[in-house]
Amino acid sequence: MSSPLEAPARARRRWLDAGTLTPVIAALLFGAYAALQMRWDWLGNYYPLLLRGLGMTVLLVIVTSSLGMLLAIPIGLVQVVGPKWLALPARAFCTVIRGTPLLLQLWLLYYGLGSLFPQFPWIRDSALWPILRQAWPYAFVGLTLSYAAYEGEVFRGAFKGVPKGQLDAARAYGMSGLLTFRRIWLPQAFKRAMPTLAGETILQLKATPLVATITVIDVYSVAAQVRQQTYLTYEPLLLISAIYILMAVAITKVFARLSGQGQDNTAFRKS
């Protein structure tokens, strides 16, 4: 029925249909309402603190996801290839971390471990002590371990899911175990894990406000502070909601980019 020439017109009409239009209009109306009817004068005083909190949140997500992923790869791998004495602890680690609330883990690290440390003189006297006295290392460690446990599970499945024939082919063409891992197994496992990793990293983002409970200043804790000091409830919460949404979109984009690499049909232009 429709000639190719009509396609742009149809695309325009689709863009204007109710499904897309409703949220856009709603967002515009709400934005206008928020700008006109709500109070934003506090932003002037608080934006340096907000930026600092935002920086901490961004840093937490990037650093703990990256480190967590580095840990997750061996944790997933040893559960697939062994040896048993590594597979069992890896399995146990995943089970324990995934089976307990992150809040609990953070508290155990900070209020538990953190309060044990000063009892050992060699720790208190060490060069690391000024760092260990602060809260942020426990936040980073806690979130990293959590990500590693969830992603270890993802990678276990991803490694297992790579068809045996692909690895057979690698061996048959003389690749060493390490080369097979680097060139074939890991890249394919990554590709399999990628869609899940995107979602898990957004969950990681949304887990970061928990660090406020161990006195780390992230973007959420700043909002809470604004609320306490100005008695404004909705404004700061709305603002950080928007910030979290933007960050989630950014994460989605980054992962779409990463997993797009393997699909690009023209990736090998050089020839």
Binding site: P163, G165, Q166, D168, A169, A170, R171, A172, Y173, G174, M175, S176, I184, P187, Q188, K191, G262
Partner: peptide, 20 residues
């Protein structure tokens, strides 16, 4: 073994081209 394998090329029933 790697030296020998590299020169004994194998063609599989299910192709086993590296999918990535």
């Amino acid at each position: 073994m790697r030296r020998i394998r590299a020169r004994l090329a194998m063609v599989f029933q299910s192709f086993n081209l590296w999918s990535h």
